[in-house]
Design a protein around this nucleic acid. Structure first.
Lengths: 212, 212
DNA sequence: GTCCAGAGACCGACCGGATGGTATGCCTAT
DNA sequence: ATAGGCATACCATCCGGTCGGTCTCTGGAC
């Protein structure tokens, strides 16, 4: 991923280099994130990529197809990473901490993707929306599984549903695309460490006198 | 007494009743939340409200103007409520808990507004976007103030910046519009209680005893 | 080595239709 | 009579998508 800050490129500097489909995908990601899917016209998109409409419709069936390709890229990467962290060795609290920090880290590294993900969901067709949601749910449940495992072991509190904690956490992660700025004072890893620490803290069993 | 004219232009049960501007606002809120701002045409909007374009453009300068009116309504309500909770009597942890639970509760009660809020921010003009962000920041800082107050008093941990906790929390609140369904098994108040409890738990000073 | 056929990559003019917005005037209450 | 509330007809523009055509590259026939 060479997804650096796009301050150098502008509308008058088309992206020339690399294969056309990849170029389209990368330009589309930037434009959709900056302006929104609907505010970005196909003409604007192909101009920025240095090709023409003919080229784009040669590789993608529609504008929405391009959007879906972005979703697939995001989903497969996130799922792959989470699966790796969840299936690692070690106590569940540490696995959870690492997975939680990692999702923040990678989200920050791919802010454009995340911004598109939640802002443009309603632009997908019903079929594809269903597919995305299904994949997303699997992701969600993998995370929840770790929390429930910790609850069974007694290292996490049980008076709050695991679902609530997961939803709360991913809400915060999603929200990163709204406020996090690359030049800020905190790196993605630092935010990830804080977020993960807060998650672990809130899951710790309550005071000495209260159990299940 | 009036409106004896029998011309029926009802296409899909248009909303008839109440003043026209309010009707437009309420219908727009529903449609923008369901389909997105850009997917909702002005024609569709006014038809659903049982009026014509002439009526809408008589009260609102543009489609975006309508959107901004929705933002103003949301912002003023949220700010008003938070200010009340933050300025109440009692220990800061209890004030924070009540405010945190309340924002969830009211968010769930106005899910359409919240959905529009974050999904259509980029459709506002620069001036208005700035205004919205400024108001939003004030809101954010009021919340942060409570946490910092608790940190000074020693009831909240200080090894995590208050900003991080606030951002994390509001990310989760915002995310409610994505997953919360009215018919679910949890009421808004219940989710609010859980969320607030998790927030308080994560802010409790670390360590088995009460050290800082 | 030359030639030709064919296929995939890509171009860009064009289209139907929808959209936000406007101009104008009627109708009713004051 | 006047003014605001609202309807109707209309417009300029822009958008996603199409379609016939042109280039380039490849590979088999001779």
């Amino acid at each position: 991923m060479h997804n650096t800050d796009g301050s150098e490129r502008s509308a008058t500097a088309p992206d020339r280099g690399g294969a056309v489909p990849e170029r389209l995908l990368s330009v589309a990601t930037r434009l959709f994130a900056d302006q929104g899917f609907e505010r970005t016209s196909v003409q604007e998109l192909v101009s920025a990529a240095g090709v023409t409409k003919g080229a784009m419709y040669h590789y993608f069936a529609s504008k929405e197809d391009l959007l879906y390709a972005i979703y697939q890229r995001v989903l497969s990467m996130q799922t792959e990473r989470l699966t790796r962290f969840a299936g690692a060795e070690g106590p569940v609290s540490e696995r959870l901490r690492k997975a939680a920090a990692d999702v923040v880290h990678t989200t920050v590294d791919n802010l454009d993707d995340t911004r598109i993900f939640f802002r443009s969901l309603h632009m997908l067709s019903d079929d594809r929306l269903t597919a995305v949601r299904k994949e997303r749910r699997r992701y969600h449940e993998c995370f929840r599984g770790m929390i429930e495992e910790g609850q069974r072991e007694g290292v996490f509190r049980t008076d709050v549903p695991a679902d609530i904690a997961v939803t709360q956490y991913f809400g915060a992660v999603h929200h990163l695309s709204t406020w996090y700025r690359a030049g800020g004072e905190l790196t993605g890893s630092q935010v990830g460490a804080y977020f993960a620490e807060l998650l672990l803290a809130e899951l710790r069993p309550a005071g000495p006198g209260s159990g299940a």
